[in-house]
């Protein structure tokens, strides 16, 4: 294969990959705090894009994106406070079903609010046809925005967990909720915070990828499945592993297209997921189980 095509496939793969990775991290943050898989994660991405497009009608782009992130965070908090917080010792299954219900609720509300049209934010730099040469391949500047912002998010969230008081408290809550609670940590508020954080991350990712992928009320479900695959692939609870797994899956999908008909793209990623579940059910990078988050 010619070098420029190789690079072209690789970059396409990385673009898919960072999107999957960010959704995967969103799963992990909430999983760590509560032990549940939040299937409304994809809806946060959708909400981020949709709200930003609406706000961009009367605000400059950066303000619209900031507004969308804050509003989606509020939705995240609301979801937790309305549906999760008041449950007394809920079973994991019950909470998962609740999040699926919430995802349907948000999706249908978005349909009522925005209709079924496809929207997209304008390209941050250049427009739909501009591209930058990278080693002979042509790449849209938005790809750099998406990859850059998503990677920055990962670095920030990792640093936050490691070095801030709230971050440490959340890790404590993740390691042992009862013990954390006995030490006087506000575990309930920390759970809310986990929803707020993952909603905010999803929303920001939804904004930066919106020019590339376009946003519609129903895109959340597909993203949630890919993000879930990535979270499992990396090992549930491990955010950095989710990034690696996301990039891996994206590149794998992209190269599978070069060899196989496109129809097999999703089959390839699901086959990888099954293989991992059989061979290494704890995920690809499960060596450091003790320091999740």
């Amino acid at each position: 294969m010619a070098r420029e095509l190789l690079v072209q496939y690789l970059i396409a793969g990385l673009t898919y990959g960072v999107i999957y990775a960010v959704v995967g991290i969103g799963f992990n943050i909430i999983y760590n705090a509560t032990g549940i898989i939040n299937f409304a994660q994809g809806e946060f991405v959708m909400l981020g894009g949709m709200i930003a497009v609406t706000l961009h009608g009367f605000l400059p782009l950066p303000a619209a994106i900031a507004g969308a992130v804050v509003l989606t965070m509020a939705v995240g908090a609301l979801v937790e406070m309305l549906f999760i917080r008041w449950l007394v010792k809920p079973s994991v299954l019950r909470m998962i079903i609740i999040t699926i219900g919430v995802s349907i609720l948000i999706r249908e509300a978005a349909l009522l609010l925005w209709g079924n049209g496809v929207r997209a934010l304008p390209y941050f730099t250049g427009n739909e046809v501009s591209s930058v040469a990278v080693l002979g391949a042509r790449v849209s500047p938005q790809v750099f925005w998406a990859v850059g912002v998503c990677l920055a998010l990962v670095v920030l969230i990792t640093a936050w967990f490691r070095w801030t008081t709230w971050g440490r408290q959340m890790r404590a809550c993740a390691a042992n909720r009862t013990a954390a609670s006995l030490c006087g940590l506000p575990t309930r508020n920390l759970v809310t915070l986990s929803f707020v954080l993952s909603a905010g991350m999803g929303a920001l990712a939804g904004c930066v990828v919106s020019p590339i992928t376009q946003t519609q009320y129903g895109i959340g479900a597909g993203l949630a499945i890919k993000g879930f695959t990535v979270a499992i692939l990396g090992g549930l609870g491990n955010s950095l592993a989710a990034v690696a797994a996301g990039l891996l899956l994206g590149v794998l999908e992209s190269f599978s297209v070069s060899l196989l008909p496109t129809a097999y793209k999703d089959a390839v990623s699901i086959a990888v997921l099954l293989l991992i579940l059989f061979v290494r059910p704890t995920g690809l990078f499960a060596a450091r189980l003790t320091s999740r988050v």
């Binding site: 294969m1 010619a2 095509l5 072209q8 496939y9 970059i11 396409a12 793969g13 673009t15 898919y16 590339i212 992928t213 376009q214 129903g218 895109i219 597909g222 999908e253 992209s254 190269f255 297209v257 070069s258 008909p261 496109t262 129809a263 793209k265 999703d266």
Partner: peptide, 20 residues
């Protein structure tokens, strides 16, 4: 000739194949 999923959000790999 390529068939893609109706919910596809990025088709860079597919058009790269066309270019190739």
């Amino acid at each position: 000739s390529e068939t893609y999923d109706k919910a596809a959000t990025d088709l860079t790999a597919e058009v790269t194949k066309m270019k190739a």
